[in-house]
Amino acid sequence: MHRDLELVRVGRRYGIRGPWVLRGVDLTITPGSLTRVEGANGTGKSTLLRLVAGIDTPTEGRITGRPRTAYVPERFPSALPFTPVGYLTHLGTVHGLSRRTAAARAADWLERFGAGAYAATPMAHLSKGTSQKVAVAQALLADPELLVLDEAWTGLDAEARAELERAVAERTAAGGAVVFVDHDPRRLAGVPDATHQVVDGTLRPRTGQVAAPVGPHTVVIVQGPAGGRLPADATRTAASAEEPAPGTYRLTVPVSHSDVVLRALLTARPPWHVVTVSAPDVPPDEKDRP
């Protein structure tokens, strides 16, 4: 994704004389950003996400800068006459991969989400959760420039939920944009670059960020070259960075992003040395209080 996806005065209504679901929406999605969309049920969150994903065309206004997009619906049907690996191979080629790459990545992503055992089971026989894993794999397997997740976590088991958070972290670290809706306020808590609220059929940046919930963190202690500076990717992702001794840093990182930070540190030139990775002694939100 090389340029911004921009929604300018976008409105959407169903039917020629139907009521406006959304109107006057301005939104800019920059590469590498994580955007959260909030709102009560029926306010038009899903409609907004369908516009962002390019599934629906706006009734008024315009959308420019469409990148390669992938979408995960909230509920994925298992009424498809394929096996997961067969479906994912088809979708991989639709996303522009070669058949061979698509098949290999399909197997990898199913394995990553703990659905490798069902790769060759007809989709009609899959449980709701496993179907949802197929939907998530479908979107991730072609490294999309824009990933749109409409309550994609719903129905996933705990391991797969954590894996999807890590996959989102990888995507944004690789320069892709991610837009998501989720009812759980702890989902990727403290990580989004922007949070928007759908209120009265339009979009507002969330104001009054008094009690933004803080999610679980990991503490990473690293040593760098003398006088070295932390890699930009690591500083950007870490919630806080302290320097208890010269050259030694103590980073507090959202658990979903620990892999991304470690990768940035270990692949830096020259590489950094990871001393310890541990759970924090004191939750960071309590420690910050006076």
């Binding site: 994903a53 599934i55 979408y71 909230e74 049907p77 639709v94 939907a135």
Partner: peptide, 16 residues
């Protein structure tokens, strides 16, 4: 024939 959610995934990738 295609379930709406599956159609949405394809449309996001290739346009309506």
């Amino acid at each position: 024939g295609e379930p709406p959610a599956a159609r949405a995934c394809v449309v996001a990738a290739r346009g309506p």
